[in-house]
């Protein structure tokens, strides 16, 4: 009887899990298909290498791709050290349970719930005006860093927290110093999880629009330095889709490029993760 019940609940659970997966794939497939089918026909070498002409309805998106890469770069440069440090602190078996840690965790969760437009206005007031960076790739990247941090820390924390149980005890038994435990024992084993956090962070950063309109700006020229304003792919899509008359097709073309870019980043991260896993 018990056995039958087990088999039955096993089947129900399997059906549920498969349904979830199929539902997700159906939605994702539908959405990506409608974006890519509307846009991919216009993506060609010229589109990738030219500057936008006629408000983006003609020409290409080369400077926009460059700006996007730079913005993401600045964002990661700020997020990774800050985020990994915070995650180690929060995941620590002693400091992570303190009142301070709960406070920090809550603060980060609240940060995650701040509307992107508030990030944009804040970034504009703080980075652009107060710190004098102006509309620039730098202020855009740093604003994005504030935005990505909560996601990055949460995922990184759970990666570090779960990896370390046995290793942490072993390190304690060996009387290893905190420094050694952190850098030689915990971090190397958390790398796959950290990469997952990074991928999610990059994805979030690539998807962001409202925070960037007010910080990295709207300029479609090739950026000459990090102090120049540069338009990101998502801002370009937003502008073409909502402000430029007849920009819809190009908006979908740009979205297709974004999807392809995301695919590339993911596949690369995946293989890096696998290589690292094999090594360790």
């Amino acid at each position: 009887m018990q056995q039958k019940l087990n088999t039955f609940s096993g089947i129900v659970f399997a059906v549920y899990v498969w349904t979830c997966a199929l539902a997700f794939c159906a939605i994702a497939g539908l959405l990506l298909y409608s974006v890519v089918s509307a846009g991919v026909t216009q993506v060609n070498w010229a589109f990738l290498t030219q500057e936008p002409i006629d408000s983006g309805r003609d020409g290409g998106i080369a400077p926009i791709i460059l700006s996007t890469v730079l913005i993401i770069g600045v964002c990661l440069l700020a997020t990774v050290p800050l985020g990994v440090g915070t995650a180690i602190f929060l995941a620590d078996r002693i400091s992570g349970k303190s009142k301070l840690a709960i406070g920090i965790r809550t603060a980060l969760d609240v940060l995650g719930g701040v509307p992107s437009i508030i990030f944009g206005l804040f970034g504009n007031a703080f980075f652009c005006i107060a710190l004098g960076m102006g509309y620039s790739i730098l202020s855009g990247g740093l604003t994005l860093a504030c935005m990505v941090l909560p996601i990055f820390v949460r995922v990184a924390e759970s990666a570090i927290r779960n990896v370390a149980v046995d290793h942490y005890r072993a390190a304690m038994a060996l009387a290893l110093s905190k420094w050694t435990t952190t850098f030689r024992v915990i971090l190397p084993r958390a790398i796959p999880g950290l990469l997952a956090a990074l991928t999610l962070g990059i994805a979030r950063a690539l998807a962001e629009t409202a925070a960037l309109i007010f910080t990295s700006g709207y300029v479609t020229r090739f950026p000459e330095s990090l102090n120049d304003s540069g338009r990101s792919l998502s801002v370009h899509i937003y502008d073409l889709a909502l402000n430029v008359t007849g920009g819809n097709d190009r908006a979908f073309a740009t979205a297709s490029v974004l999807v392809i870019l995301l695919l590339l980043i993911n596949v690369v991260t995946h293989f890096v993760t696998r290589k690292l896993l094999r090594q360790s």
Partner: peptide, 17 residues
């Protein structure tokens, strides 16, 4: 901290307007 990050990225502060 942010000013520090700024220096870390090796960039001079730009002109706003």
């Amino acid at each position: 901290i942010f000013a520090g990050l700024l220096v870390a990225t090796g960039c001079s502060v730009g002109e706003f307007s």
